[in-house]
Amino acid sequence: MAGELEFERPVMELKKKIAELKEFTKTADVDLSSEIEKLEARLEKLEADIYENMKPWDRVQIARHPARPTTLDYISYLFEDFFECHGDRAFGDDEAIVGGIAKFKGIPVTVIGHQRGKDTKENIRRNFGMPHPEGYRKALRLMKQADKFRRPIICFIDTKGAYPGKAAEERGQSEAIAKNLFEMASLRVPVICIVIGEGGSGGALALGVGNHIHMLENSTYSVISPEGAAAILWKDAAQAKKAAESMRITAPDLKELGVVDQIIEEVKGGAHKDVKVQAAEIEEVLTHSLKDLMDLTEDQLIDHRYNKFKSIGEYSFLKEFIGVK
């Protein structure tokens, strides 16, 4: 099967064997059904073993899978009447971020998300899902519009990070990200963020100041990519696997660290195995989330967001005072 990942190879091989046996019994005059049954039982056990004990690096591989569903994939399953809006009204249209208005179960909403491509051609058009400042400014424009018309905002996070380029710096990558964090703080509408793939650093966070943050089971969210961390910590990008483990970047890690509200279960082997089923899982979580938040007043929503981020972090106090004098 195309796109199989290293760690799931034993499952794939066993599946192939079972398929071969089934094919064989059809043509030959022998009964192998008991054999097949045994193998199927083994497959079930093996799948449970592999998919329920995934290492951080396995999850990174799934989060980066070329066939992993993107923002636009989920939009087509989750929303009706999606109307895409383009441009930041100042410089251009960054296709690494898509956004627009739509209905979710009849409720008007604004949807925004990072958008990567699934093949080279689309990836070039989408800049591999790595936005420039105008992408973040487009997102902010749409958020302000949502605020004006009191529409809840749903953000899908899926980027390796903000694009590290010359033009991006010249046009104020830092300022664009900072402004989004700043302005998202005072939105008077529910903001729900869902990490669907890679959540890479500030470029991801710029769509991430939500009342609720949810993560697909096999997505990641981190301050730096495993490769980047390995390059800095051990001067060796090849140690990314080790970095993925020590940096605590998976959904269960983030839940434990108090960043993420809910983990959205994934289809066995990853969202790309069945987009429709995956979208249904997201729909359920989104429905609950939205219901909870729509009960809050505008001020409560802003306070809720303030308190959420205020509570993230770990620190303690020394007993003796050592200060600058």
Binding site: G208, S222, I232, R248, I249, I312, G313
Partner: peptide
């Protein structure tokens, strides 16, 4: 920039400080 040894918690401090600034600014 962000302190790597505290991972995603460092990243979230960007949001925490910005959210506080926005309230102050408003």
């Amino acid at each position: 920039g962000a302190r790597m040894q505290e991972g995603v918690l460092s990243l979230m401090q960007m949001a925490k400080t910005s959210v506080a600034l926005k309230r102050f600014s408003d």
